[in-house]
């Protein structure tokens, strides 16, 4: 999923301070799962903003609404009946959602409430960790199912570097050495020889080096 974290309240207060009425829009997808921008977080933030602004003598009306998905135009249309009654929108979705709301409602200022972080998985309750950088040409078949691009601090495709110690990365004891994980897994699968194959220099175009990326499915595209 795409993970995110709420921005400091101080920053959000400054975004909304000039406005009388805002619409705070959550998203029921990834940011709900990572407890950053779902219905509950929308409620928490609306209360927090109102209470914080009140102390500097400002009252603000905040309408709360959480969409099924903020990255699809069909769902964003749902905001139409509410949009005229507000001066600005604050989105609690990832950066995709913020941009889609801004694209649909061109005359309303749209502010992000979250910092979008990474594509990750839930390691355990309350802990999310990066797993994929969307490089566009998956290497996992060669690396035992563990991604060196997302999980090696130096993005080494033929690691490990000389800083791998007892399974940990040189940058922090809290970071696993991706190449230790890869090696352990290749060994467990009896695929040690795979390690000796040099992974050649990567073509970064599918990773975004070729400009903004787009997928077009001709059979589906309208």
């Amino acid at each position: 999923m795409i993970t995110a974290e709420r921005k400091p309240l101080e920053e959000l207060i400054e975004y909304v301070r000039p406005f009388k009425r805002i619409l705070l829009v959550g998203c029921n997808e990834c940011v709900t799962v990572c407890s950053a921008g779902g219905r509950k977080e929308v409620g928490l933030l609306a209360s927090g903003l109102k209470m914080a602004l009140l102390q500097s003598g400002t009252t603000i009306e905040i309408r709360e609404h959480t969409l099924e998905r903020q990255c699809d135009p069909e769902y964003i249309d749902e905001l139409l009946p509410m949009i005229d009654g507000v001066d600005a929108v604050m989105s609690m979705a990832c950066g995709c959602g913020v941009q889609e709301v801004a694209r649909r409602y061109k005359d309303k200022p749209v502010f992000p409430a979250l910092n979008t972080k990474f594509m990750g998985a839930s390691e355990r309750q309350g802990v999310w960790a990066e797993r994929c950088q969307g490089c566009g040409n998956c290497l996992l078949g060669m690396t035992g199912g563990i991604c060196p691009i997302a999980r090696c601090s130096k993005r080494l495709m033929n690691g490990p570097c000389g800083g791998s110690v007892t399974g940990k990365c040189e940058i922090s004891k809290d970071v696993d050495c991706a190449w230790q994980l890869i090696w352990d897994r290749l060994k467990a699968l009896g695929l040690e020889d795979q390690y000796l194959k040099i992974i050649p220099a990567k073509d970064w175009r599918p990773a975004g080096g070729g400009g903004p990326r787009k997928i077009i499915r001709e059979d589906l595209a309208a």
Partner: peptide, 16 residues
Amino acid sequence: SPVRPLAMQASQPIAC
């Protein structure tokens, strides 16, 4: 509480 006056205002329905 510094935000007590909020409770004095007409309570607004919490839309979902």
